[in-house]
């Protein structure tokens, strides 16, 4: 694990590139229906941004930005958005995942279906982002992850791996 101020070039470069990476991921998710991209790809890019921060700045820095409970919450919310949009179509007398029946104030059915596609891609993106960061956090840390405990004991446990 790289300690703080160990490698100034990597840290500085990641600090510069982080904001464009996250913006690009959100762009990929929201523009997925009109250009190459979609929920899976954008979610992977967002997750890779957080993994980049964790590699360059260390786990403590990243855990202060996005906690593990927050990651789990985001991935649960992603699946819930997807299933919720599907179930909401049943309430307005459609089939499951029949977005054309959603009561949006738009004139044509096809536009409403496009909005539905965008909605479920947000859900997919959140889930994929959460799972990517969660798998990385679990694989990289030998024990439970706690940002306060960065003392000697955990360092020793890390070095033994």
């Amino acid at each position: 694990m790289i300690n703080r101020y160990d490698n100034l070039i990597i840290e500085f470069f990641c600090r510069i590139i982080a904001a464009p990476v996250f913006t690009f991921g959100v762009y990929i998710i929201f523009h997925g229906e009109a250009s190459p991209g979609g929920g899976f790809q954008g979610g992977v890019i967002l997750g890779a941004g957080f993994i980049m921060l964790a590699v360059a700045h260390g786990m403590d820095f990243t855990l202060r930005r996005i906690r593990e409970k927050m990651i789990l919450f985001l991935s649960c919310v992603g699946v819930f958005i997807y299933g919720g949009i599907g179930a909401a179509c049943i309430l307005w007398r459609g089939n499951f995942l029949d977005y054309g029946k959603l009561p949006l104030p738009l004139d044509s059915v096809s536009v409403i279906r496009g909005i539905g596609i965008m909605g479920i891609e947000i859900g997919v993106g959140l889930t994929v982002m959460g799972v990517m960061i969660s798998i990385y956090y679990d694989l990289i840390d030998p024990g439970g992850i706690q940002p306060e405990l960065s003392g000697g004991e955990e360092e020793e446990q890390w070095n033994s791996f």
């Binding site: 096809s110 536009v111 596609i117």
Partner: peptide, 14 residues
């Protein structure tokens, strides 16, 4: 039918 020019997204999500 879905107002999505990207066929892959339309098939994937709809």
């Amino acid at each position: 039918e879905t107002n999505a020019p990207n066929f892959v997204s339309a098939v994937l999500a709809d």
